[in-house]
Every structure is written in structure tokens, then in C-alpha cells.
Design a binder for these strands. Structure first.
Lengths: 212, 212
DNA sequence: GTCTATAATTGGATAGAC
DNA sequence: GTCTATCCAATTATAGAC
């Protein structure tokens, strides 16, 4: 922790620092991107939302892509400590619970943001090309899966992470308050985690319907 | 069926007819939109993909928005008969199953397309503004929910429809073949439908794990 | 950090010939 | 149905003054 920081490479997203001016750009951009998508959000729109000119925005970030990268880094950093906690956990099932609870927290408290970052075509391409993003997402999936790698386990994980981030935005739940939503999602995810998968745990079925 | 058709209003999406040239535009546009989103797809890209000029594309559709509307109509029409069958069904649970199976079919057989149309900001706005889309989607939700309207039921429906359309695109299941995916999704949706919801059916629990 | 001004390109859309 | 040619607005991005 004491050695001089390299300029180009931060090992953790949470260690990346931004100036106040940059953060203001990121806040304005995120809000617009959540509504219009990356391609549908222009620098002019961002500048207008901030009450400055385009040139002022370009002073903070050299390109539009850099803004998107900065936003993505910031969002992923919100899951970083949860992933690390999960990786450090000896008990695999408990590790998954830690991670899922945090993912639910994020999805509920930031309704809309998570799903945009997960489904916007530009960000998807960015995540595939930008190595730090790739590495982190792989860690996330690994922690979510644990040692299971079968078809069923992967589908459960895929459905869960999808359902969580998207369901919170669904018209059918638009009127449900955050607390109820969070509680119900945790309940549902526990149920799905505990579903018999027919090939994994010769372990105790003690947790079946424990959350119910 | 015999009376002269009104120009402006088709009652059913499946009754809308398109010329071969229009269909070629729609095919090219859908492919590009599925990858880049609506805002990220230009008329030039569509024309290039077809091997024609922009002007030729504009001959088939007056605006870019009309292309997006046509594509959306075509996709929704694929669920139209399933919604009607569900609405005609006396048995509510059976109705939901019919609809869900079709939604799973669509999501699996057209991996990627469904989720784009469901999450692209431009299409979301379009669906909110275009009345025929609104009406159909409301019918879809109604059939999916049946007579239940509680928090839990709505969240189940939201999670299911979300999870289905998104999970099929998830990196974790990228290598799973269509048939396995379909079978597993049907299994999962049955399980979720049959979960005890604590307030609905004083009905027979006969169907619990029937699909397993 | 912010501005004005502008370059260079691409976007959606139309006119008119074949 | 397709083309060339064009219009105009909006886009990303930069230069240089304050």
C-alpha cells in the first residue's frame, strides 16, 4: 500500500480516483445513458444537462468512450468488495449468498442503471474489449457459480443474475417499493439457489425452504 | 374477413402484410439492431448490409422509425396466437403455461432478438407511445398474471419473463444447445409457477413438481 | 475550467433520372 | 426498385482566447 502508484494500471476499480469535475460529467452522462442508451446520448446532451458547453466536457474526458469506461468502472467497483468477500469465503454457498445479496442491493437501489450497463450494445462490446472489465466479470461469474459448472447450475446463475437486474425495472413491479422488492428478491434467489439440482450436493438438504 | 380492409388500422399484427422488398429491409435491420441497438444502427449500415443505397431503403420505409415499428410488429405477432390461446383457456394455470412455453420458444430460437427488442431505449419509448403495442403488451401481462395481482405474483411474473429473455443470451449459457436450454427453461418456469405463494390457490397442490 | 468558433464526418431524408 | 447527387442538421472532436 505504500509504494508509488503506477499511472496506467490500477489493480482495483475502487482505487481509481476522479476529480470533482469528472464526477459531475459521469453523473450527468449516467443519467442520460440510463434513459437513452450510449449511442442515443450525445456529448451535447451531456453538456446541456450540466449547463456547460461541449468543450468543457472534452476537457474532462478526451473521448466519449472514456466517459463510458469511467462510468462502467465506477459501477463495477460497487460489487468489487462483495466479490472479494465471496472469494475469501470458505463456505461456497455462503459466498454466493453474499454476492447475490449485494447484486440485489445494487439492482434495487439503482433501478435502471444496472440493466442499462448490462445490456447496452456499446457497453457489451466495451466489456469484451477492455481487459480489466473482462477479468472482473469472470471473477464475478466464478464466485456466483462456485465449484459447480454443470448446465443446470450455470442456467440457474444466468437466470438469477438476469432476473434480478431486469425484474426491478419491469412494469409489473413498477409500483412496488424498494424494501419490499429487496426482500422478495432475496427470498426468490434463496429459493432458486436451494433448488435440487440432481447432480451436485450429496450434502445436507437442510436449507431447503429455510428462507420461506 | 370479407369486408374491405381499412388502410390505417389492422386489428392484428399477424394481418399486416409486407412486400418482399420490405421484408428484406426488416431482416437486415433486425440483424444489425440486435448487435448495435437502434441508435447504433444507421440507414447507411442497413443499406450496406443489403448491398443497395440509402435511397433504395427509403423507398420501402419513409422513416427509420417505421422500420423499427415494422420489426416490432413482426416480433410481437409471433406471440399473438399464444396470447389469444391463453385468453381463451378456461384453466388459468394452463393458460400461463401455454404463454410461457411460447415465450421460451421465442427466446431460445431467436437468441438475442427478443432481449434487444425488450431493452433497447428507442423501442421502449416506441412501445410506450405506439398504442397497438401498448394494448398488446397489456394483454400479454394480463394473461401471464391471470387473476393474481399481489406483489409476489407480479414479481414472479416479472422475474420469469425477464430471466427467460435475458438468460438465453448470458455468457454462462453460451455453449448450451438450444434443445437443452429450452428443456431447462421450461423446467425452471414450471418450478417458479408452482412455488407456494401463500395467498393464492386454496386449490389442489397436485401439480407441485409434476413437471420434474 | 470555461468559453466561442470551427473543422470533419456522419446522420436522416429528399429530388429526380433510369 | 434502384441509382446519383444533394440538403441540412447533428455528431465527434479540436484550436485558441479568457
Amino acid at each position: 500500500m505504500g509504494y508509488p502508484r503506477l499511472v496506467a494500471a490500477a489493480e482495483k476499480f475502487s482505487e481509481i480516483t476522479r476529480t470533482a469535475a469528472q464526477t459531475r460529467v459521469m453523473d450527468a452522462a449516467l443519467k442520460l445513458i440510463a434513459e437513452h442508451g450510449v449511442s442515443g446520448t450525445s456529448l451535447q446532451m451531456i453538456a446541456d444537462a450540466m449547463g456547460v458547453t461541449k468543450a468543457a466536457v472534452y476537457r474532462q474526458f478526451k473521448t466519449k468512450e472514456e466517459i463510458v469506461i469511467a462510468i462502467t468502472e465506477r459501477e463495477l467497483s460497487r460489487l468489487e468488495d462483495a466479490v472479494e468477500a465471496a472469494e475469501a469465503q470458505g463456505h461456497e454457498l455462503r459466498a454466493r449468498e453474499i454476492l447475490l445479496d449485494r447484486m440485489i442491493d445494487q439492482a434495487v437501489s439503482r433501478r435502471g442503471v444496472v440493466s442499462v450497463l448490462q445490456f447496452d450494445p456499446v457497453i457489451i462490446r466495451l466489456q469484451a474489449e477492455h481487459e480489466p472489465f473482462q477479468r472482473f466479470i469472470e471473477r464475478l461469474y466464478a464466485a456466483l457459480l462456485g465449484t459447480e459448472a454443470g448446465v443446470e447450475a450455470r442456467l440457474h446463475a444466468a437466470m438469477l443474475s438476469s432476473a434480478i437486474s431486469v425484474a426491478v425495472m419491469h412494469p409489473l413491479v413498477a409500483d412496488i417499493d424498494a424494501e419490499t422488492l429487496r426482500a422478495q428478491l432475496i427470498l426468490m434467489s434463496r429459493r432458486m439457489l436451494d433448488l435440487p439440482s440432481g447432480h451436485d450436493s450429496r450434502g445436507t438438504p437442510k436449507r431447503r425452504s429455510a428462507a420461506v
